[in-house]
Design a protein around this nucleic acid. Structure first.
Lengths: 343, 343
DNA sequence: ATGAAAGCGCTAACAC
DNA sequence: GTGTTAGCGCTTTCAT
């Protein structure tokens, strides 16, 4: 097993010292251009690659960002990761990715791992089962900057990148009202996650803004599975008084609505308009296609990375937490485009 | 800025030497249980976390796997990453993820980065623009084991995890024939990528096996965009003699077929049966839902990681490259379920 | 403009 | 059973 080339090998080959080689490779001044040239050529010739571990150990830092997401293979999160990667790459940083699988214990493990790895920064979105954000304090104790995104906790004062969960819902309600809807239902997600709570609160607020009735039976709480939501929606649609619009807190829930409506013989959008959240790819492929709220996940990932590179890496004021809000956008498709005739 | 706890701090606090502490933490024999206990308690008390860089530098290895994929946020690849992560995590390894963006130059950069990082193994799928696999030799020169998956090159002798691109297509042809189809078309992907070439070759082979005519005009080559494919399919469907079955080498191409068929007023599946490849989530959401070939991407990711942990990490025989083949499965949906009446 | 030497935090061969 | 010491590959202060 051949040993890898080190600066010592280069030094020996050129009759120089390791320090000179190091300086040469780092473009240090005080090294003559001729020597630099020589060193760089030799480095290429010997196929030298810096040893990141030695570099990191010596300098105490590392050009590595740690990312923790609930699931790597959910569109939303994989887009965020792709966005972070893009910006990290521009800044010569690499990414260590962990998934918590929405499990609190595993999230603790991920945090531990990233601390071991001495990452320059941790960027994370909370697991659904994390009771709160108190365990994040440990990251800060280890002097590692922390940026939270999407599912964030207020328990710890950090930079945050979040979606404006209110404006999209308000826009959706306004749009549906303009299409003649007056009886609104909402399928909400687990309420201990801030994003779902915010969406539900925004839903109620929007109805009140428009003097529309808030029908508590029409707010289905804690839907985390399509099947559960489908049953709940069917029950709702079998009543004599039923909603004429449903806003779901996630796109997969709208699939449950489509199926339930189909079963109950209710026409979408004319008898029941449906709006989702996240703008998953499939929302434009269903029949009817589903209106949804675009969260710009790739941009969100870029924003997260930029918080680090712009505000954290070189800033003197690392203390004041900054919150970046990504504004979502309502994408109107067939599922909300009711024929607007009467008025 | 508080310094992080090191084994020196623990040693000092207990009046021991760093080596004893190190041994204690690593559960070395020759250390009394009492001392071990003491050391471990102190470590927790002082919130000690091992410094991975020092460990890696000292041991020369690292418990980090490097993964390079064309795009992180494509379902297929994000599933593979999730699979790798799952197995890596079970083995206390972390993942460094890079995306080549299907760009050859960026792929070279990724490889460089991972070599810097001294990863224990590189797992990668080639960029679409990589002319060949000669640049992978560099990885092996640096004594880093390499596992290729999905888009692999024969230019370098390494372990591989690939899909059986033949069997799925053959199964699809058999299924379609059993449904009465006799005139087969194929939408092929870029032919310099082995996966698309293999699928095309399998298509031709399957037709020959069934004594079906191979109609060269009905093999659309190098389709990498939905729009391009749509135009090509429309042209094909406007001829007097047209196919009654289309097998696409990727799911997004079937969307083009649906649109083209719709425009040409051709009924799916009865006038034209359609089968995709990859079993993307949306294939069951379209109208009609699309038959497709499930590649088991998550399992593929696990298989990739297992090649490392089972065959590479401790094996004495690292030299003989092993190829793991994942068998795909045809998922039958509406788009190929023609009414079988005549015979 | 270059060299010498120390040290980042850890492990392991060698002492005792 | 525990201590001593050297060294992984690199950067950087200090010396020349």
């Amino acid at each position: 097993m051949k040993k890898r080339t080190t600066i010592y090998d280069i030094a020996k080959a050129l009759n120089l010292t390791p320090s000179t080689v190091s300086r040469g490779l780092n473009n240090h001044s005080f090294i003559s251009d001729a020597t630099k040239q020589l060193i760089k050529e030799k480095a290429i010739e010997l196929n030298y690659k810096i040893n990141a571990h030695a570099y990191n150990l010596r300098t105490g830092g590392s050009k590595t960002l740690g990312v923790i997401v609930p699931k790597i293979n959910l569109t939303f999160f994989s887009n965020i990761i792709a966005g972070i990667e893009e910006v990290a790459n521009l800044n010569q940083h690499t990414l260590i990715i962990c998934q918590s699988n929405d499990d609190f214990q595993k999230e603790l493990d991920c945090i531990n791992t990233l601390i071991h790895q001495n990452v320059a920064c941790i960027m994370m979105s909370l697991a659904a089962t994390s009771p709160n954000g108190e365990h994040l304090a440990e990251i800060l104790q280890h002097q590692i900057p922390l940026i939270q995104f999407d599912r964030v906790s207020e328990d710890v004062a950090t930079h945050k990148v979040i979606n404006n969960n209110e404006i999209g819902i308000i826009e959706a309600v306004a749009h549906l009202k303009s299409r003649g809807c007056t009886k609104f239902a909402h399928i909400a997600g687990p309420q201990h996650l801030n994003i779902y709570k915010e969406r539900k609160d925004a839903f109620i607020k929007a109805l009140q803004m428009h003097d529309l009735e808030v029908h508590n039976d029409w707010i289905i709480l804690d839907s985390y599975s399509k099947e559960k939501a489908k049953t709940a929606v069917e029950n709702m649609l079998m009543q004599t008084e039923k909603p004429d619009a449903i806003i779901a807190s996630a796109d997969f829930l709208t699939l449950a609505v489509l199926e339930a409506a189909n079963k109950c013989n209710i026409a979408i959008p004319n008898q029941l308009a449906v709006c989702g959240y996240s703008n998953e790819i499939y929302t434009e492929l269903t029949k009817p296609s589903i209106s949804s709220i675009n969260q710009f996940s790739l941009e969100m990932g870029k924003a997260v990375a930029n918080v680090y590179f712009d505000s954290l890496q070189h800033s003197t004021d690392k203390k004041t937490p900054k919150t970046v809000v990504i504004e979502p956008q309502l994408i109107i498709r067939e599922s909300t485009l009711r024929a607007v005739s009467s008025s």
